[in-house]
Amino acid sequence: MALTAAPHALSRQVYKDATELQPGEFTWEPDLSPSGAVAVIVSLPEQLVHVYRNGVRIAVSTCSTGKPGHSTPTGVFTVLQKDADHRSSTYNNAPMPNMNRLTWSGIALHAGNLPGYPASHGCVRLPLEFSRRLFGITHIGTPVIIAGSHTDPWELTHPGMVLNGYAENEFEEVVASLDGKSHPSDWDSAEARPVTTMIASSADLQILMIENGEEIASSKLTIDGPPILGEHVLVFRESHPGQRGMAWHGISHHEDPAFPHRPEELVINRIRADQPFISLMQRKLHPGLVFTITDLTLHPDRRTGNDFVIMTVS
């Protein structure tokens, strides 16, 4: 296959293994999974960005993250704002093309210089052409996991709603609640629907529901078995009539330490919420909803303002 022309020398699509990518190079194969929920994983040790759509990796890019003294925070974020022609309000009006904002304090994905090592003030710099393509498939609410490593997503089909065990009789009710709801990437410019996220903390034994950045509900979290869960992100896909369940994609930041040899998706069977919270979740459920499970506290110091959770800080 021929190389695709890029806007500048340090941004080009190539066809090689991810481990062989040089600074500024990226792979991009969207036809491997043409539609569905997108999740982005930034691996700090690899200095690579992995893009998954419907659980299939469609792209890998080199990147440059925070230099010493300006570390890129690790954890789970969602895209809060998008601006194709953004300029920094902190660093001399510096251009930040194709900016996907992750925190209101200034962490974002954007195009920038790629020297082959961590060199930013905390942001994740990307090749210009890759940043343009990524900008085209993300939306407000797209999950971005910044981690010390990356793992491939796993699939989960759960009968009925999560958080209340295997309730197969709920399937038709949940499917009915999804009628007319689409994934945010499919919304047109006139649609202004709320993007819903949930965060469950084993440290606080609490689960929160956040809508457009504002907390709208909470519940006591009940855990079956040992009171540790690991770190996981679930992205809701759709109902699955064949298996009579709700289909999710999961990404584990850290596996369930209580059961390290069990399938990762079984962690969801160990947690419960109060019925009013579950009922609200059923009404709010939409394709692309992000559900984070963490062993860290939901204390404000672990959060980026009122938007989402930072699991850890590097």
Score class of each variant (00 low, 15 high):
Leu3His: 14
His8Glu: 15
Ala9Ser: 15
Leu10Phe: 15
Arg12Glu: 15
Lys16Leu: 11
Asp17Trp: 01
Ala18Cys: 00
Gln22Gly: 04
Glu29Gly: 00
Pro34Glu: 05
Val38Ile: 06
Ile41Asn: 05
Ile41His: 03
Glu46Val: 00
Leu48Arg: 15
Val49Gly: 03
His50Ala: 02
Asn54Lys: 12
Asn54Thr: 10
Gly55Glu: 08
Ile58Phe: 02
Thr62Val: 07
Pro73Gln: 09
Gly75Leu: 02
Phe77Tyr: 15
Thr78Asn: 10
Gln81Met: 11
Lys82Ala: 04
Asp85Ser: 13
Ser88Gln: 06
Thr90Lys: 13
Thr90Pro: 00
Pro95Lys: 08
Pro97Leu: 10
Pro97His: 04
Asn98Ala: 08
Asn100Gln: 14
Leu102Met: 12
Gly106Leu: 03
Ile107Asp: 07
His110Arg: 04
His110Pro: 08
Asn113Leu: 14
Gly116Pro: 11
Ser131Glu: 08
Arg133Cys: 01
Gly136Ala: 12
Gly136Ser: 14
Pro143His: 05
Ser149Trp: 09
Glu155Gly: 09
His158Phe: 12
Val162Leu: 13
Phe171Glu: 15
Ser177Thr: 13
Lys181Trp: 05
His183Tyr: 07
Pro184Cys: 08
Ser185His: 02
Ser189Val: 07
Ala190Gly: 13
Ala192His: 15
Arg193Thr: 07
Pro194Ala: 07
Pro194His: 05
Thr196Lys: 02
Thr197Tyr: 01
Met198Ile: 11
Met198Lys: 02
Met198Asp: 04
Ile199Cys: 01
Ala203Glu: 09
Asp204Gln: 07
Glu211Ala: 10
Glu211Phe: 08
Glu211Val: 13
Asn212His: 08
Gly213Pro: 06
Lys220His: 12
Thr222Cys: 00
Asp224Val: 10
Gly225Val: 09
Pro227Val: 08
Ile228Asn: 07
Val233Ser: 03
Val235Phe: 02
Ser239Asn: 14
Asp256Tyr: 00
His261Lys: 11
Pro263Val: 03
Pro263Met: 05
Asn269Asp: 15
Leu280Phe: 10
Leu285Lys: 04
His286Phe: 02
His286Lys: 12
Leu289Ala: 08
Phe291Met: 12
Thr292Asp: 10
His299Glu: 12
Thr304Ser: 14
Asn306Asp: 15
Ile310Pro: 00
